[in-house]
Design a protein around this nucleic acid. Structure first.
Lengths: 347, 347
DNA sequence: GTGAAAGCGCTAACAT
DNA sequence: ATGTTAGCGCTTTCAC
């Protein structure tokens, strides 16, 4: 591989001149420019990124930690980051934290070691102290997505889980549902809490509270949705609507509902969260809350580009909106929903 | 950030000793070891990857080009690569080629520039000549997934598209289907051709040929599946089974079938390909061919680890098997399928 | 406008 | 077993 030295020799100039031309910094005469460009062309010269990085202490890479790249949700987010990073001439190095504190620490350290210019962090756990210190010491700018618990964040992108959950619950309420079960994801995930707050807000607008619905805590998994729904159906209470903590849970709930001979939305309504890939493939197509994952990834990378370029990004905290995607899984409560309890009658 | 120099000073030894200890190469006395380890600990020293890479011309990164990280299929593959790479102490730098020749070239060049130790390539287009030359010049080992058209491959991982398609078609044939339509993906994708060969093989076993079924070429997209199925249904021929080039096409076909009031599998059977995330969420759950995407990613990274370590990987070409996942979308042909044409009667 | 020179942090002969 | 030295390829004062 030819080096800058080869180019300079061939062009009959000094290495500095070549360097200046490439970097576009400083003046270069036209004669020199032509000679150097030709030499580069003929030699097939490519600057050595490692050397450049060592010298300038910049790798032109953005590091990203997500829960798991293999999951469609995060994959989309990473896709957005790549596009955003590319706009600033950077690449994205991704690592998975698998929602485990030590794995997350490991991932961050890996990226820091590789001298990433900045980090985008989607973490599920509070950051380990040693990692916090490492970040501080390296002065690497950090953009966090979602959580706000990280003390090291230079800027934050937040997803409006609160508003999304509120919109979903509002829809249920507006359609007249009162006997509602919420199949929540695990309490260890931070999104869970925000969504719960949103639900409470919607309920409160209708003069209700969380106590007026049934909340079951589990995990963001299809199996939880299935089992919880089976339990719900077997219990003494009756329901006209189920809200799921995410679309996986919703898929499980739907399967259980079908297995029990319940029609959706005629007998029961169902709402999800995320607008995952499979949401619109369910039958009926799932009404759910879309998170703008790719936009979020893009915005995070763009923000980092700004920060790294010394540009003021304007805002240090960006809230991205969710969107209620109305499909076919929500209807009005069945009048005959609960003959045995002549409870609330909805118009 | 402390450097090796700081460590050596603090430990009262030379930089070489520190370097040797870290690299685990050469002898280090116990006294020195203790002193150095303590200094590293106290200083919070982390070796500078860039400097190390510049010196040794190794980045400890594996570069990967896939069609699009944001798509669940490739995301899973990348997930596998990460696990495989980590086993060898390497990270994965991913770039998307978007099935475009120049984008793919751009992606490969980016990875090469970053001094990746080896590359995993899932390309949809023949590699541009200048890129081929670049790879040759850099002597970077290459593992290709799927395609075999790349002249630069050090090793290859292949997915048995041929066997998978054959198995799917065999299933249809065994169940008695003869009026079959195949909604193929675009001819520009190489998988398309292999699958077509597999289908031809299965047909030939039954004494038939490709001419005995209807093949429609389109794109690997839901919209194509939908439109093609609408056309099929509106034509003068009748069908008892549809085989789709992938699960997206199958999803579109299913939607069109439902819209036309056809029941699956009672009126028509449907098979997909890929076992995408949504396959089992369709109603009925889709019978399809699973590609072991994550295994493939893992294997590719493991292969590269072997090659880079100078170990003989045993095989330079690994064929990974596909698996027929039988769910609920395939049945026997409806007896009354085509009253108007008293064609073949199947048992 | 251009070149000389120093040095980023590390590794690997080579010498001791 | 350890230190000395040179240099990987590049950027960046500084001097002219």
């Amino acid at each position: 591989m030819p080096t800058i030295k080869d180019v300079s020799r061939k062009a009959g100039v000094s290495r500095s001149t070549v360097s200046r031309l490439i970097a576009g910094t400083g003046y270069v005469s036209d004669a020199a420019r032509v000679a150097v460009e030709q030499a580069i062309e003929e030699l097939g010269y490519r600057p050595n990124t490692l050397a450049r990085g060592l010298r300038s202490n910049r790798s032109n890479m953005i590091g990203a930690v997500v829960v798991d790249v293999a999951s469609p949700f995060y994959a989309q987010m990473v896709g957005g980051m790549q596009k955003g990073a590319r706009a600033g001439g950077r690449s994205v190095l991704v690592s998975s934290g698998y929602a485990d504190r030590d794995e997350e620490a490991h991932a961050v350290i890996e990226l820091l070691d590789r001298a990433c210019d900045g980090l985008i962090l989607y973490l599920e756990n509070p950051m380990r102290d040693d990692v916090v210190r490492l970040i501080d010491k390296s002065k690497t700018p950090i953009v966090t997505i979602g959580g706000d618990e990280s003390p090291v964040a230079t800027a934050k992108i937040r997803i409006d889980n609160y508003g999304g959950a509120r919109a979903a619950m509002r829809l249920l309420l507006e359609r007249g549902h009162r006997r509602i079960a919420y199949l929540s994801g695990g309490l260890k995930y931070r999104d869970t809490h925000e969504r719960l707050r949103g639900i409470a807000a919607a309920l409160s607008e209708a003069g209700l509270g969380l106590d007026d619905i049934t909340v079951v805590h589990g995990d963001f998994a299809e199996s939880f949705g299935y089992q919880a729904t089976v339990s719900l159906l077997g219990g003494h209470k009756t329901y006209t609507a189920i809200m799921a903590g995410d679309d996986d849970i919703a898929a499980g709930a739907l399967a259980a509902l079908k297995a029990a001979g319940k029609r959706v939305p005629d007998d029961l309504s169902l709402v999800g969260f995320d607008d995952n890939f499979h949401a619109r493939h369910l039958t009926p197509a799932l009404t759910t809350v879309r998170q703008p994952v790719d936009d979020v990834g893009y915005a995070a990378a763009a923000l980092l580009n700004d920060i790294l370029a010394g540009r003021d990004p304007g805002q240090r905290e960006i809230m991205t909106d969710t969107e209620l995607i109305v499909r076919d899984s929500v209807g009005r409560p069945a009048r005959t929903g609960s003959r045995e309890e002549a409870g609330e009658v909805v118009p």
